[in-house]
Write a protein that binds this DNA or RNA. Structure first.
Length: 875
RNA sequence: GGGGGCGUAGCUCAGUUGGUUAGAGCGCUUGCUUGACAUGCAAGAGGUCGCAGAUUCGAGUUCUGCCGUUCCCACCA
C-alpha cells in the first residue's frame, strides 16, 4: 500500500480522481425504474463566460446536493449545458470585428453566423473545463446548448403554441433601445442608476399671444419630437391655455396644450412637453389625445431626418446644440442640477433610449397567473421562503415581454411574411409557399429571440420536449433549481410560466436561492472594479475542496457572503486535519481492514461515545442537507471531525493502540476505521476529491466513495445514556487540565488525582485515557478531600470532586482567586435556578422535563457550592 | 413611493419550531517540538444580541414603533 503524504496536497490527486470518475461513468444518469429520480438543471453559463466566484458557489451547492442524493440511492441527473447568450456573444464578436476593421453588416448574416459558431467552438468549452476543476459531477454526456437541435426545436414549438393562441403579438410600443448594441431590450435587461443630470427650463410661445408656457426637461433633444404640452386639468395657472396652440421652437411645429391627469402640478413647472415616440408616459398621453408620434432618434442614437438641421448629430451633441440655440432664441429660462434615475443597458452600460418601435411581445397576464398560483399552492417552494414574495411582486406587476432582438446570433423568429399578399405566417416547419396565396416569395423575420426565451424552456427542452422521450418522462419535473436571487426575474419566473404552459407541470419542486459572493470589503465583484477573485487561481493554490468548503460554511441561505482568503485557509486547514487523522489511523492499522459494521467489536465507553456522536452527526447533517441548510451541515461536520473525532477520540484511543493488548488494539482500530469511513462519506458531497483519495487508501473498501451509500441514522447506535455518562469523563479531563494551568503547573508534570466520586466504575474503565489526556500519574478514590493532604487545589465536576496536591507549586492566592470566581459563578447559577423555580408560572406552565431539569441543576450547583466553600476554608 | 435584507465577540458571520451558562472561524493572551497534524495541541480573555415597548412562566428568536445600513422594484417630465 502507498504511504499517505505528511500534508494534504490536493494538486497531487484532484485531476486524476476526476478523470477516474469520468472513466467509470460515475456521473452518468440512468433511467432506472427501480430508483427514484432526482433531477437538477444546471443554470447554463454563457458560452462567453469564465468561471467566477458566483458560479463557483452556485455549482458547489448543486454538486453537494447532487452527490448527497446520489449516495442516498436516487437516480440522479445533473443536466449541464451552456447558453448561447445572444446579446453578450454578439457584442463580443462585433467588438472583435471592429478590431479587424469590419462590421457584421459588411460580412452579412451568413458569414457572421459562421464566425459566431467558430467562436463558440473555440471558447464555448472553456467554462465546461473550469467546472470540471471544481469537481462538478454532472452528466457531461448530456451536455446541452441552447442553440442545439433539441433546444431549437423546443423554441420553435413554444413560439408556435403561443403565437397560435394569440399570446405572441407584434406591435409598435415604447421599448428600451440600446443605441450601442442596436437592439431592443426587455424591461429586466435595463439597470437603473441615479445619475447626475440637468433640468433645462424652456419657454414655448403660445400662438397669437405674448404668453409663453415654461416646460422642464432632462432630455432637450427629444423636443424635436414634441407633439403637445400637457397640464393638469385643474391647474389654475394653465386652465386658460388648455386647447390653445403652441409654436414648438426651432422646429416651428404647431402643437396643442392638452389636459391630462398624469401631470403632477407640484413637480417642475406643472407643464410637461409630450414626446410620444420617446417616453413611455408620453406615449400613453399621446394615445389618449390622439397625438402624432414623431420618432426623431435613429437606431444608432443619432437624430434622424425628422430632426431637420440636427439630423445626423449624436443625441448628446444634438442636446448641446439645441440648448445653445434655445439660449440664443432667449427661450432658455434656467438650468438646474438634477439627479435622476437613468436606464442603462445590462450588457454595455450605455444609456437606454425609450423608443417607439415595432417588436414582438409575449402577453404576460395569462401566463403570470398560473405561475403565481403554483407557488401559492406550494407546488413549487422557495428556500428561503421570503423569495416567494419577491417572485409574486415581479409577476404581479409584470408587463408584456419584448422578445425580439435586432441580433443575428440566436433563434431566429419563426415568422415569415408573404411578399405578394402580405400574409404573416408562423409555423412549426419552414414554409415553402404562402398558405394564403401560394406565393413562394416568403421572407423570414430578420430578428432573433431574447436569449431568455430559450433559457425558459431549459428544464424540459434538454430532455427532448416536445417529444415524450423516456428522459422527459422519467426526469421531469425536476427537483431543485439552485440560483442567485438576482436571476429570479430573468429566469426562475420565466421557467415557471413556461413549464406550466407547455408541460402542464411546474418545472421544479424547490427553488434554492443563494446570495452574491462579494469581495472582502463587501463590494460586488466586478470587472470594472477589478476586484474579482479567479476561482481557478484559488483552486490552484488551495485545491477545489478547500474552495468549495469555504463557499458554503458560515453562509445562511439567501444571504450574501464575503470571499476572503482566510476562509479558504481555514477550510484547507480543516481538510489537512482530516487528512492527518486518516494518516494516523492507517499508520496504526497495518493489516487491519475496515469493518463492514460494528457487530463483533467489543466497545468501550469511549467507543460508544464517538459512535453516538457519529450518529447524532449523521442525523443532523442529513436533516440539514434535506432542508438545504448547507452551512449548518458543514458546521456540524467540521465540529464532529475536528473536536470529537480528532481532538478527543483519537487521543482517547492511543492507550489502546500503544498499550500492548492486541485484542484491544484491534477493537480500537476497528472503531477508528469505521468512524473514519463513515465520516468520509458524510463529508464527500462537500469535499469530493480528498474524501475519494483517502477512501482509496482504506484497506477493505471497494469501489469509489462517490457511489457509496450515505450513512444512515441507526437508533441502535445512539447510546444516549452511555454517551452522556462519558461526557462526564471528558469534563473531568478538562477540569484537571484547567486546574493545572491555573496554578502554573507545567503540562509535562504529571499530577496525582484524588477523586471523591460515585462514578468509580466509569472512571476506572477509562483510567488510562484519563491519565494520558489529563496529564496525571495516578488516580486514587477517596472518601474525603483531606486524604489528598493539606495543600490541594480542587474542582467540582459533574462526576467527581477532584483534589490535587501540588506541594510547592500551589500559589495559594491564585487558587483562592480562582475558587472565589468559581463560587461566584455557582452562586449566580443557584440564584437563577431559584428565581425560575420560585416562579409558580414556570413550575406549572413549563414542560415538566424542563422543570425537573431545573431542580436537578439547582441541586447539582448547591452541592458544588458546598464543596467549593469547604475548599476555600481549607486554604 | 412600494418591498426585502442586515444590525450578535476586535473582524467576518452562524444561531433550526421561543427553553440549560448565546456559538464558530480569524485575530488576541498564556503555555506546549504531548510517538497524525505548528495547516497543530491545551487553557483563556472578549458579547446590555441596534434602541424602546408589547406578548409569554420564559425573547437573540414572535409582534409594534424608532434609529442605522444595504439591496430590489416603481418613478415627476
Amino acid at each position: 500500500m502507498k504511504e499517505m503524504k505528511t500534508t494534504y496536497d490536493p494538486k497531487s490527486f484532484e485531476d486524476a480522481i476526476y478523470a477516474r470518475w469520468l472513466k467509470k461513468g460515475a456521473f452518468r444518469a440512468k433511467i432506472d425504474p427501480q430508483k427514484v429520480p432526482f433531477t437538477v438543471m444546471m443554470p447554463p453559463p454563457n458560452i462567453t463566460g469564465q468561471l467566477h466566484m458566483g458560479h463557483a458557489m452556485d455549482e458547489t451547492m448543486q454538486d453537494i446536493i447532487v452527490r448527497f442524493k446520489r449516495m442516498q440511492g436516487y437516480s440522479v441527473l445533473w443536466q449541464p449545458g451552456t447558453d448561447h447568450a445572444s446579446l453578450a456573444t454578439e457584442h463580443k464578436i462585433v467588438e472583435k470585428l471592429r478590431e479587424e476593421g469590419t462590421t457584421k453588416e459588411e460580412l452579412g448574416r451568413e458569414e457572421f453566423l459562421r464566425r459566431a459558431y467558430a467562436w463558440k467552438e473555440q471558447y464555448g468549452g472553456r467554462i465546461v473545463e473550469q467546472l470540471k476543476k471544481l469537481g462538478c459531477s454532472c452528466d457531461w454526456d448530456r451536455l446541452a446548448f441552447t442553440m442545439d437541435e433539441r433546444c431549437s426545436r423546443a423554441v420553435r414549438e413554444a413560439f408556435f403554441r403561443l403565437y397560435d393562441k394569440g399570446l405572441i403579438y407584434r406591435g409598435s410600443r415604447i421599448i428600451n433601445w440600446c443605441p450601442d448594441c442596436k437592439t431592443a431590450l426587455s424591461d429586466e435587461e435595463v439597470a437603473y442608476s441615479e445619475d447626475a443630470g440637468s433640468f433645462w427650463y424652456f419657454n414655448y410661445p403660445v400662438e397669437g399671444s405674448e404668453e409663453v408656457i415654461t416646460i422642464a426637461t432632462t432630455r432637450p433633444e427629444t423636443m424635436l419630437g414634441d407633439t403637445a404640452v400637457a397640464v393638469h386639468p385643474d391647474d389654475a395657472r394653465y386652465k386658460h391655455l388648455i386647447g390653445k396652440t403652441l409654436i414648438l421652437p426651432i422646429v416651428g411645429r404647431k402643437i396643442p396644450v392638452v389636459a391630462d391627469e398624469y401631470v403632477d402640478p407640484e413637480f417642475g413647472t406643472g407643464a410637461v412637453k409630450i414626446t410620444p415616440a420617446h417616453d413611455p408616459n408620453d406615449f400613453e398621453v399621446g394615445l389618449r389625445h390622439s397625438l402624432p408620434m414623431i420618432r426623431v432618434l435613429g437606431d444608432d442614437g443619432k437624430v434622424n431626418a425628422e430632426g431637420g438641421k440636427y439630423a445626423g448629430f449624436d443625441r448628446y451633441e444634438a442636446r448641446k446644440r439645441i440648448v445653445a440655440e434655445m439660449e440664443e432664441l432667449g427661450l432658455l429660462v434656467k438650468i438646474e442640477a438634477h439627479t435622476h434615475n437613468v436606464g442603462h443597458c445590462h450588457r454595455c452600460n450605455s444609456t437606454i433610449e425609450p423608443i417607439v418601435s415595432k417588436q414582438w411581445f409575449v402577453k404576460m397576464a395569462p401566463l403570470a397567473k398560473p405561475a403565481i398560483d403554483a407557488v401559492m399552492k406550494n407546488k413549487t417552494k422557495f428556500t428561503p421562503d421570503r423569495f416567494a414574495k419577491i417572485y409574486y411582486n415581479w409577476l404581479e406587476n409584470i408587463r408584456d415581454w419584448c422578445i425580439s432582438r435586432q441580433l443575428w446570433w440566436g433563434h431566429r423568429i419563426p415568422v415569415w411574411y408573404c411578399e405578394d399578399c402580405g400574409a404573416e405566417i408562423c409555423s412549426r416547419e419552414d414554409p415553402a409557399v404562402c398558405p394564403k396565396c401560394g406565393s413562394a416569395h416568403l421572407k423570414q423575420d430578420e430578428d432573433c429571440l431574447d436569449t431568455w426565451f430559450s433559457s425558459a424552456l431549459w428544464p424540459f427542452s434538454t430532455l427532448g420536449w416536445p417529444e415524450e422521450t423516456p428522459e422527459y418522462k422519467y426526469f421531469y419535473p425536476t427537483d431543485v433549481l439552485v440560483t442567485g436571487y438576482d436571476i429570479i426575474p430573468f429566469w426562475v419566473m420565466r421557467m415557471m410560466f413556461s413549464g406550466l404552459r407547455y408541460t402542464g407541470k411546474v418545472p421544479f419542486r424547490d427553488v434554492l436561492i443563494h446570495g452574491l459572493v462579494r469581495d472582502e470589503k463587501g463590494r460586488k465583484m466586478s470587472k470594472t472594479l477589478g476586484n474579482g477573485v479567479d476561482p481557478l487561481e484559488v483552486i490552484e493554490k488551495y485545491g477545489a475542496d478547500s474552495l468549495r468548503l469555504s463557499l458554503v460554511t458560515g453562509v445562511a441561505p439567501g444571504n450574501d457572503t464575503r470571499y476572503t482568503e482566510t476562509k479558504v485557509e481555514s477550510s484547507r486547514n480543516f481538510i489537512n486535519k482530516i487528512w492527518n487523522a486518516a494518516r494516523f489511523v492507517l499508520m496504526n492499522a497495518k493489516d487491519v481492514q475496515v469493518p463492514a459494521d460494528l457487530t463483533g467489536i467489543k466497545l468501550t465507553p469511549a467507543d460508544r461515545w464517538i459512535i453516538s456522536r457519529l450518529m447524532a452527526t449523521v442525523r443532523e447533517v442529513t436533516i440539514s442537507l434535506q432542508k438545504y441548510d448547507l452551512g449548518i451541515a458543514a458546521d456540524k461536520l467540521t465540529a464532529f471531525v475536528w473536536d470529537d473525532f480528532c481532538d478527543w477520540y483519537i487521543e482517547l484511543s492511543k492507550p489502546a493502540l500503544y498499550g500492548g493488548d492486541p485484542e484491544r488494539k484491534r477493537a480500537a482500530l476497528g472503531v477508528l476505521m469505521y468512524v473514519l469511513k463513515e465520516t468520509l462519506k458524510l463529508l464527500h458531497p462537500f469535499a469530493p476529491f480528498v474524501t475519494e483519495e483517502i477512501y482509496g487508501y482504506l484497506p477493505g473498501t471497494e469501489g469509489e466513495i462517490i457511489n457509496a451509500r450515505y450513512p444512515r441514522y441507526n437508533s441502535k447506535f445512539a447510546y444516549r445514556e452511555e454517551a452522556k455518562a462519558f461526557e462526564g469523563v471528558i469534563g473531568l479531563i478538562k477540569a484537571v487540565r484547567a486546574m493545572k494551568v491555573s496554578v502554573n503547573c507545567p503540562p509535562a508534570k504529571k499530577v496525582h488525582l484524588y477523586l471523591v466520586t460515585d462514578a468509580r466504575r466509569l472512571i476506572s474503565v477509562n483510567k488510562n485515557s484519563i491519565l494520558r489526556l489529563a496529564g496525571a500519574s495516578e488516580i486514587d478514590f477517596v472518601e474525603r478531600g483531606a486524604a489528598a493532604g493539606e495543600k490541594t487545589v480542587s474542582q467540582v465536576t459533574e462526576i467527581a470532586h477532584i483534589f490535587i496536591p501540588l506541594g510547592e507549586l500551589v500559589n495559594i492566592e491564585e487558587e483562592r482567586a480562582r475558587l472565589t470566581k468559581e463560587l461566584d459563578r455557582v452562586i449566580g447559577e443557584i440564584a437563577r435556578a431559584d428565581g425560575k423555580l420560585s416562579n409558580k408560572n414556570f413550575t406549572t406552565k413549563a414542560p415538566k422535563k424542563l422543570v425537573d431539569d431545573e431542580y436537578a441543576k439547582r441541586d447539582k450547583y448547591l452541592e458544588m457550592k458546598k464543596k467549593i466553600e469547604q475548599q476555600l476554608e481549607s486554604l
